[in-house]
Design a protein around this nucleic acid. Structure first.
Length: 423
DNA sequence: TCTGGGGTCCTAGGACCC
DNA sequence: TCTGGGGTCCTAGGACCC
């Protein structure tokens, strides 16, 4: 069977989600902000037209926001995740082999499709269906490799005449499009590689496709070599339909305000550790290595800087929050230095094990906590329910460092009290 | 005053082994 | 003066992605 992939990607996803529940903002420029209301992470098409760039700090575009009446939202991941699931469920109906690549995009395997089915028509149908059922508009790129499907999707967005669906199964069309696109538009080619490639005279996507794969491998990496082959229609990257098990769990946040108090910083670390432990249990894994880091802001050239991280290996793999809090706290005390204005902290878990599938240490006393598993289960269950929350004392009771979310929209689809009302 | 968070994969180089 | 060859494993750091 000839490989064929479709990449379906939601337009301006976060901004579109917010607009969905605010019909009054249909033609209003809308942005969604990162945690702490720090940077712009999503822009509606009106904002893109105004020339406001992706990723810029909010305070730098304050004037434009006021001048053009741009409406700002704090990020509301519960809402985006829920709408994402709805979109993915629709796609899955038409392509059982689906790779959910990120919150707003997915690869579909089209190789099993009826050979008489026109792929352009198929793409249009998908687009119409998602739009009608969720209100989210998508772009569709179809091609014999994932890298080309990405590029087709890029073209679908860039050129309105395509109607947001581009079929790139034909090699001549591939060549023509590749010649039009910059090498930096290619999936897997970032800022660093773009400048290195351009030094060698590789400017367009077509230049990269025509490069010698072996030479690319020795000068860059196997990854880029694969990209070259994929651009030539040779499929090297298969669909990853089953989410691979996580290799690490990170929980970190910038603080709403700079933190100078040791106890407050300590509580923040405890809070992140608690959250990371929850995620770990969600993955049904145990972990053995814990890393804690703290740092000052890298954006303050006149302030003393400090950044430090430290890891420790536990004597046995665990998913018990109490074990993990102990290690995190010990690590924190090792790396903490007074006299700095801390901007961010976090924890990292790694070296994961399945329950009952690790080597016990012959000389290690069996000091595992009694009923650890069932206790953690209860804690998680209470915290998932609507009957209040319980927490560990180490997290503190009145944190002053929590993040800013001054423009948060309601949890329209995941909380009964926030259900939109129609009058 | 204010600058996101969470991941993956690859590579080079050092330690160590026979 | 002369100073092997071939492995494996681990880690830190770099590059990329959304």
């Amino acid at each position: 069977m000839k490989p064929a992939f479709a990449l379906v990607d939601c337009n301006n996803f976060y901004a579109s989600c917010e607009k969905l529940f605010r019909p009054d903002l249909k033609h209003t420029p809308v942005v969604v902000l990162s945690n702490n209301d720090g940077c712009i992470v999503a822009r509606s098409k009106e904002v893109k037209a105004l020339g406001v760039k992706m990723g810029v700090p909010m305070f730098q575009v304050q004037e434009e926001i006021i001048k053009h009446g741009i409406v700002c939202f704090s990020s509301n991941y519960a809402l985006y995740a829920d709408l994402s699931n709805r979109v993915m469920a629709i796609l899955e109906e038409d392509a059982p082999r689906l790779e959910v690549y990120s919150i707003d995009e997915a690869f579909m395997d089209l190789s099993g499709l009826d050979p008489l089915m026109d792929l352009q028509t198929f793409g249009k149908q998908i687009k119409r269906k998602v739009d009608k059922w969720t209100g989210i508009t998508v772009g569709v790129g179809i091609a014999p490799t994932k890298t080309l499907a990405k590029l087709a999707n890029h073209a679908a967005k860039k050129y309105p005449a395509t109607g947001s669906v581009v079929n790139l199964m034909n090699p001549d069309r591939q060549k023509r499009l590749l010649a039009l696109l910059d090498v930096s538009d290619v999936w897997g080619v970032g800022r660093r590689m773009t400048s290195k490639l351009k030094e060698k005279g590789i400017n367009t996507a077509l230049d990269l496709a025509n490069a010698n794969p072996k030479a690319i491998r020795s000068e860059f990496s196997v990854v880029l070599e694969r990209t070259v082959r994929e651009l030539n229609g040779i499929s090297c990257l298969d669909l990853e339909c089953i989410r691979p098990t996580k290799q690490q769990i990170i929980c970190s946040r910038s603080f709403g305000h700079k933190v100078t108090d040791k106890q407050q910083l300590r509580e923040a670390i405890a809070k992140y550790m608690t959250r990371a432990a929850e995620k770990l249990r969600g993955e049904k894994r145990l972990c053995r290595v814990v890393n804690v880091f703290i740092r000052t802001s890298p954006f303050m050239p006149n302030e003393p800087r400090y950044a430090k991280s430290l890891s420790a290996e536990l004597p046995y793999p665990t998913a018990d929050t109490r074990d993990l809090l102990d290690v995190a706290d010990a690590l924190f005390h090792h790396i903490y230095r007074a006299g700095f204005r801390y901007a961010k902290g976090g924890v990292m878990l790694s070296d994961f094990y399945e329950h009952n599938a690790f080597q016990q240490d012959l000389f290690q006393a069996d000091n595992k906590k009694v009923n650890s598993k069932s206790l953690m289960k209860i804690v998680d269950r209470i915290n998932r329910s609507n009957h209040g929350k319980i927490f560990f004392a180490a997290e503190g009771v009145s944190p002053k460092w929590t993040m800013k979310r001054e423009h948060l929209s309601p949890a329209y689809t995941t909380k009964w009290a926030d259900l939109p009302k129609v009058y």
